[in-house]
């Protein structure tokens, strides 16, 4: 069994340890005797998303945003929208998550159009939302707790066409106000948990793999792995955030 994983824009959307997510997905497949074929699609790549099972989009710096948007609007946006409607599994983090929405409006009112694959938009704020945080995924997704680190000034608002990925337990999430975190639409998972979120959230990592495998083969049984270290890192951060909240 093999999954084709695409790392979209690894050259610019790689802000902080994003590659750790790819490594985690790949390893967890390999440990179960399955294969992962990794395809990197940097800016300027003409490779098609056809046949891709799972797309990962990371976060990036403002400096490269213009270069990125130019590339997106050369057809990649249309292709992404089609893949999403077709049920391809997507993990989009921070800047990559915002990019799937309708637009980003800066603090001083300048608007930048994104690809509009998800019913959400983002407005820049002056105060950055930075720190360790945790949220609980929707019950339909398994209700697991996810710990991560967020660092964003954009406040994201969800439209009626998408569900929140989860409810904030500690930290800010989408906007620091409505307790929602991330977005879920078809098989797209958008989140502010930047950097390598998957290694220390093994249940969430397996949710992505299961979703992609189910689409590819109809059903997916994931053999359990020894996640003692992963769960230790996860539990320690949960405990710390609980303590800070108390």
């Amino acid at each position: 069994m093999k999954l084709k994983i695409c790392h979209l824009y690894p050259d610019v959307l790689n802000l902080y340890g994003d590659g750790g997510n790819i490594r985690c997905l790949t390893r967890r497949l390999q440990w179960r005797g399955m294969e992962a074929e990794l395809v990197k699609m940097p800016i300027g790549s003409h490779e098609s998303l056809a046949g891709v099972d799972l797309v990962f989009i990371g976060g990036g710096q403002d400096f490269e945003q213009q270069v990125l948007l130019e590339d997106l609007h050369r057809g990649r946006d249309e292709e992404l929208r089609a893949a999403i409607e077709d049920g391809v599994t997507v993990l989009a983090v921070c800047g990559g998550y915002q990019m799937l929405g309708a637009y980003y409006e800066t603090y001083d009112g300048q608007r930048c159009d994104f690809i509009g694959a998800l019913d959400l938009y983002t407005v820049g704020a002056r105060k950055r939302m930075i720190g360790n945080y945790m949220f609980r995924c929707d019950d339909a997704l398994g209700g697991m707790t996810v710990v991560g680190f967020e660092n964003h000034s954009g406040r994201t608002r969800l439209g009626s066409g998408v569900q929140p990925l989860g409810t904030v337990l500690a930290g800010f999430g989408n906007n620091g106000e409505d307790k929602t975190e991330g977005a879920h639409y078809k098989n797209v998972f958008g989140t502010y948990s930047h950097g390598p979120m998957l290694p220390k959230n093994p249940d969430f990592a397996d949710l992505l793999l299961r979703t992609a495998l189910e689409r590819r083969c109809g059903s997916a049984e994931l053999a359990p792995l020894d996640d003692a270290l992963e769960r230790m890192a996860h539990a320690e951060m949960c405990a710390r955030l609980e303590r800070e909240r108390a």
Binding site: N14, Y16, G17, D18, G20, N132, G195, P196
Partner: peptide, 9 residues
């Protein structure tokens, strides 16, 4: 740095 994500880079 309060964000340890960098260890994956």
């Amino acid at each position: 740095g309060t964000d340890v994500s960098w260890i994956y880079d």
